[in-house]
Design a binder for these strands. Structure first.
Length: 413
DNA sequence: CGTCCACAGGAATGACGGGCGG
DNA sequence: CCGCCCGTCATTCCTGTGGACG
């Protein structure tokens, strides 16, 4: 069979197979649905805070807090959309602007996107931040605009750059003759408030909404709404849907996780050419999401992290469980010799081990062995097999997978 | 009961690379 | 295009520490 034929076969079987999705996008996280089940109260609060804008008055600033996948972004964007269109109907000067701080990146670019929302021309670069700010002010003031700024993942911005920009924005109204600004800050890290100047904090959280995680039952309702749009009729089994929500509920009620799971399950079914999404597909989806995650980090890690992990892999295979930092460092150094790489210091490797732990690739526990020192006991956080699998087609690492450490060469110890 | 092991992990400093402003 | 600045990664040097051993 020629390559062309192979490809055509795949395409054909895809096209001729049963159709699973009606509108796959409805399961994506940036999709704004028609209804937001179990967020009626929050919608009311947010809409209430913003309502004064339609009468040309400034509403309060608002701080929205909640863990990932609790509907913060969806609720805020939903209300902003409605407000924008109502505002145009009644001819108010209220405008809205939504910015994801983490995606946009820097203070400058956040400010630039605010400017663009007003139609101000801001070059990608070249202007001082204060210059952008004053153009922004000028535009607000001259056109008497009431602007609602939603800053999503605001914690990322503050973590990187401090609260200087927020300070400017919260104080903007004092120096404006006409036009007003309100801020909606969205964060999933409550501790980030501690980093704020008290003046900024009190101004930002004039009003506050906390989004609690969804319960498993609530997630079922959400999935049902989305699934009705996303899937063809009769394709999705109820129990599969319930399983998705149960799994997501385990993870602090993360609706985003549930939607991902459901989408991937649908894709699994599509690929294998079956007609229905069943429990088994959800389980497969879960595995596939996890292995995807693991194999991307494993592949994208810097070389020395790979070598350290590889050392841990070798030691764990030897079975001599109870490896500690020193053991890994020793093997790591040998691996460096093998691959003709300069080795890093123990201090650094100790840091790398901590990073690997954060990624969930290693489990570590601080232990004291008394007379024999104080160190970290380390285990693999993922199956050894997945490490072997991913690294066996890495030309740098694969020759090292079967290396035998010197300490074991003569069979002693 | 004090020692002292084998590290943990903080602070200061240096090398490097990439983007920004002029 | 160049110099400057800033962030990241790494090194060096350091102080801290739980508990078995003597």
């Amino acid at each position: 069979m020629s390559s062309d034929e192979i490809i055509d076969n795949v395409f054909d079987s895809y096209l001729s197979g049963p159709k699973i999705f009606a509108n796959r996008d409805a399961l994506r996280i940036d999709y704004i649905p028609e209804r937001l089940p179990h967020r009626e109260e929050h919608l009311k609060v947010v809409a209430g805070v913003l309502a004064p804008f339609l009468r040309g008055q400034r509403g309060s600033n608002l701080f929205v807090y909640g863990q990932t996948g609790t509907g913060k972004t969806a609720v805020v964007r939903f209300v902003l959309d409605r407000l924008q269109s109502r505002s145009e109907e009644v001819g108010s000067m209220a405008r809205t602007c939504y910015v994801n701080c983490r995606l946009v990146g820097t203070q400058y670019r956040v400010l630039a996107s605010l400017g663009q929302a007003l139609g101000v021309d801001v070059p990608f670069t070249g202007l001082a931040t204060t210059e952008v700010l004053s153009r922004f002010k000028e535009s607000l003031s001259s056109r008497r605009i009431l602007l609602i700024v939603a800053l999503d993942e605001i914690d990322a911005l503050v973590k990187e750059y401090g609260d200087a920009l927020l300070y400017q924005l919260t104080r903007l109204n004092e120096s404006l003759n006409y036009g007003r600004v309100s801020i909606i800050g969205i964060s999933n890290d409550l501790r980030f408030k501690e980093r704020l100047d008290p003046r900024v904090l009190s101004s930002l959280s004039e009003e506050e909404v906390v989004f609690k995680p969804y319960t498993a039952l609530e997630i079922i309702d959400i999935l049902r709404e989305r699934a009705a749009v996303a899937f063809q009729k009769g394709v999705l089994e109820n129990s599969a849907l319930a399983l998705c929500s149960a799994e997501a509920a385990k993870e602090h009620g993360d609706a985003r996780r549930a939607l991902d799971l459901l989408r991937v399950a649908g894709e699994v079914v599509e690929r294998e050419g079956s007609k229905q999404v069943k429990d088994i597909h959800v389980v497969m989806a879960q595995k596939s999401i996890e292995t995807d995650r693991v194999s991307t980090v494993l592949r994208s890690m810097p070389l020395h992290s790979k070598l350290v992990l590889c050392g841990a892999y070798i030691l764990s295979a030897v079975g001599d469980k109870g490896m500690v930092t020193g053991d890994i460092y020793e093997v790591y150094q040998e691996l460096c010799v093998q691959s003709k790489t300069e080795s890093l210091t123990q201090r650094r490797v100790s840091g790398l081990i901590n990073e690997l732990e954060v990624l969930g690739l290693l489990n570590t526990r601080l232990v004291s062995l008394g007379r024999y020192g104080r160190t970290k006991r380390i285990n693999l956080g993922i199956p050894a097999e997945s490490i072997r699998q991913v690294y066996s087609d890495d030309s740098w690492i694969s020759p090292l997978l079967n290396y035998t450490p010197l300490s074991l060469r003569r069979g002693s110890h």
